[in-house]
Design a protein around this nucleic acid. Structure first.
Length: 195
DNA sequence: GCCAACGTTGGC
DNA sequence: GCCAACGTTGGC
């Protein structure tokens, strides 16, 4: 979707191979997203999709309201999919390249990271000859729609809210999968509940 | 290991 | 269509 349905070869070639699955991610700017969890801790994420390609409505009408989040071809986003997202985590469904762009719905992780089969498929727009089943370079998760938000919360609103200035969505706009803090999560939902 | 050229995302 | 940000590639 964003990534999911966007033919994009943002490399990965070299770096994915040099980022083994065992990488601890205990350092660096995304360390918190990979830090050990308290028992039962649930985390939050945001994933982008271009609605013209795959919208939240498309997910609502999909079988079991579930989709695999394939096509992500960026190593940081891949690491979130492969190592960060756990069963039961909640995910904002974000419409990118839209008028307006913004958060439209909530999903839940129903299957943790597994190899992105579209990378092995010669006919897929996401085919990547450097990713082979023995040593997959790209990963995806399955998400199921939980509910639509009462209304779209636009990127403009998010940027205008000082408490959301540090959102990864705002700070690193290119990333198609990003972590969300629980405070950010709650605030965006409250904004969606205000007319 | 540096760094310039290039490609991609995605907002505007 | 333009631009900012930034990851990758490849020459050296």
């Amino acid at each position: 979707m964003a990534a999911k349905k966007r033919p994009a070869r943002t490399g990965g070639k070299a770096t994915a191979k040099s980022a083994p699955k065992s990488a601890p991610y205990s350092e660096g700017k995304w360390a918190e997203a990979f830090a050990p969890r308290a028992a039962g801790e649930r985390r939050y994420w945001l994933a982008k999709s271009e609605p013209e390609t795959f919208s939240f409505d498309d997910l609502l009408s999909a079988k079991d309201r579930t989709t695999c989040w394939d096509g992500v071809r960026n190593t940081a986003a891949r690491n979130f999919l492969r190592d960060g997202m756990k069963l039961g985590d909640q995910v904002f469904f974000y419409h990118s390249m839209a008028q307006p762009s913004g958060v439209v719905g909530i999903c839940e992780v129903v299957r943790e990271g597994y190899p992105d089969a579209s990378a092995f498929d010669r006919k897929s727009a996401y085919f990547d000859p450097d990713s082979v089943p023995e040593t997959p370079m790209w990963y995806m998760v399955d998400v199921r729609a939980v509910r639509a938000l009462p209304r779209l919360v636009s990127l403009a609103e998010i940027k205008a809210e000082k408490k959301l200035a540090k959102m990864a969505l705002v700070r690193v706009s290119r990333l198609s999968v990003v972590p969300v803090t629980s405070a950010e999560w709650d605030l965006v939902i409250r904004m969606a509940e205000r007319p």
